[in-house]
Simulated assay, not measured.
Amino acid sequence: MHVVVAPDSFKGSLSAVEVAAAIREGVLAVAPDARVTSLAMADGGEGTLDALVATWGVPVHEVNTCDAVGRPCTARWAVSRDGRTGVVELAEASGLPAVSDEPLQPLHAHTRGTGEVAAAVLDAGVEEVLVCLGGSASTDGGAGILVGLGARLLDADGAPVPDGGEGLARVARLDLDGLHPRARQVRWRLAVDVTNPLVGELGSAAVFAPQKGARPGDVAFLDEALTRWANLLERETGVRVHELPGAGAAGGVPAALAALLGAVLEPGAGLVAEAVGLADAVSDADLVFTGEGSFDSQSVRGKVADGVATVAGASPTRPPVVVVAGRVQLPADQARAAGIAAAFSVAPGPIALEDLLPRTAVRLAEVAASVTQLTLSAGRRAF
């Protein structure tokens, strides 16, 4: 029996690696001869770097850089086993949690540190860079990443503009003479989980900047600044990013990278599934487990469960996909329509969250054992 375990993390409880280990323990408890393939998954946001490192079995590298408000920090990055793909997680250097000890700075927070991490990845000789977007503290349209890669953003007088969205309101010219020499030689892939455009009522400033401390006046200022930035990018490259679906992710980071570096925006869960080799793993699987903290309507709209179900449904054997979650809120008929055979909660009954959290790993193993036993007893007729 071949069982593939490909879960997301249970935020606030267990990492994807820990969730996979618990499910694996449950499978082997009732099927000790089973072959279990564990692939930690993520949707392209925070935690994706850890998931990929665990699945690839590669070391984590570190680089000294700065956080979203300019303070010195250390950020991690990694390279795939074959040396072709470098991974940059935006939250490592430019994440909101890392600056939560400071008053929020919606106009000044930036992504320059992420650009410096990307430069270190390029120095490693990779052929493509996977940028995991999520948890951003800034709304700078990706300008900071360009600066971190060696570009200069200049005002009408030829002076460098300030970091962050504030600088976008003054930028008049791009100086790319110092851009990292490999920046335009590699393939850039951006893991996104939203489709918001860069500007407008559904844009980055309007929808996400308030979460980063922006007041109504700040939102209007940032939307205008992002529009100015998009106009400049269009003049420089001929690429229009104003309405590009997904360009509003992570404070508008995709705008700069798509226009100047040819970056491709991709759904995060599918991109991670490709990176960890999920399709090959499920090609001869008898049963597939996935999971996340809450299984709801969002889970089947580009999240990990949806990505796993899509890949499994396209495989030759079409193995049943079972979700194990902290809570299950999606009706069974909607789950089946999305390719999910069944979904089970780890909650043993009515229970307070603080009481369930310490038992999550044990309950994951118990539920996985029950599902595996049912599969052994009834085969796929169980689902």
Rank of each mutant, 00 (worst) to 15 (best):
K212N: 14
E127I: 10
L179K: 01
G135A: 12
R359C: 12
S94H: 11
G150H: 00
D296R: 01
A206W: 04
L154H: 11
E18I: 06
G47V: 03
A230R: 09
L271R: 08
G251S: 11
G57T: 09
S94G: 09
S294Q: 12
V346H: 14
A352C: 15
G57R: 10
A230G: 07
S370N: 13
A68L: 02
C132E: 05
V63Q: 02
S294T: 11
G135Q: 12
P267Q: 08
A21F: 09
V19L: 10
L176N: 01
G115R: 00
A205L: 08
R173N: 05
V99C: 02
A214Q: 09
I340K: 09
D82G: 12
G203D: 07
V117F: 00
P59C: 08
L179E: 04
T139Q: 04
H108N: 09
E46D: 09
P106G: 06
R189T: 10
L176D: 01
P181W: 10
R363I: 06
A335T: 07
V207A: 09
G86S: 14
E46H: 05
L260R: 02
D286W: 09
A206M: 06
A169D: 09
P350N: 15
A34W: 13
E292V: 07
E166G: 06
G326D: 11
A259Y: 07
P197E: 11
L49N: 00
V346R: 12
